[in-house]
Write a protein that binds this DNA or RNA. Structure first.
Lengths: 151, 151
DNA sequence: CTAGATGCAAACAGTTTGCGTCACT
DNA sequence: AGTGACGCAAACTGTTTGCATCTAG
């Protein structure tokens, strides 16, 4: 559970004004079970602040993500990406330009669970994303990111 | 490299008419380096069939995905999902309802590379998705999938 | 007092759909 | 010949932006 006071100081540390809206948006975005969508967060926030604007929710989520206060479940939420590699494989994903490169399954030691999975979940396959920066992006170091690769 | 003939029989095996457009769309979608976006595929196809419609590309990509001829890089490409869990962790992802549950990092044996990563890629962290069906979705077995969870 | 936040509406990007016409089987 | 595919435009969903107003610091 997150305390209002913590959120306020968190915002201040990141140079963000601690408005009421922003606090509630953050709390609802961080609330369990997590992984909420903007619409879901908007719905939750509206229960507390009926007059809130959806645009405000989006603006704040973007701010939180940019400042690292929230993470995104998938870097590829914008647009569909399709693949035909029928062999099981993993991905090297560049957090900067979003490019994807395949990694053969045998390039990783087999993934092993230490404990039973939550009851009732039937695992079918394991997909590993190795997140980092690709060669091009680490070369053109910290500069403003160029256009992203869509292949 | 994919041969026209193979593609035709692949389509026939799945009960799909082997139109010229469909063949080119499939070839361009499957072409290296893979992971192409619909727009990118559209651009490639247009070089061969200038009059192609973007809707046709989308319709076919959806068909290919539904029939399992192509895979999607991320199941969450539709909408943003946000998360606040600051500890490193992994995900159990239901391929049916798209729900996500966290798995503590220690629940998996550490991920180990067998070989060096491609030159120049700087790995920062590893995100594992365990794909399968959640309890609710395996219970309400093969029926038509209900509304998806957005949290 | 001022930079930055909010709310609204309009603009955008990505994707899907309806429908008339055309083509594979 | 008939079912399904194509092309076009319109509809939709998810997200961003411009601008006037308001508020935290």
């Amino acid at each position: 559970m997150i305390l209002h006071k913590d959120v306020r100081s968190l915002f201040h540390r990141h140079g963000l004004a601690a408005t009421h809206q922003r606090q509630v948006i953050y709390e609802m975005a961080a609330a369990p079970p997590g992984h909420a969508s903007p619409e879901a967060i908007y719905a939750r926030v509206r229960r507390k602040i009926p007059g809130i604007s959806l645009a405000t929710v989006y603006k704040n989520l973007r701010t939180f993500i940019d400042k690292g206060l929230l993470g995104q479940v998938s870097l590829h939420s914008g647009s569909l990406r399709v693949e035909s590699n029928p062999a099981p494989h993993h991905h090297l994903v560049c957090t900067r330009c979003k490019s994807i490169v395949d990694l053969k399954e045998e390039d990783l030691e087999p993934i092993r669970f230490r404990h039973k999975l939550p009851h009732g979940f039937r695992a079918q396959r394991v997909a590993v994303d190795i997140l980092g920066t690709c060669k091009a992006c680490s070369t053109r170091a910290r500069g403003p990111r160029k256009k992203m690769q869509l292949n």
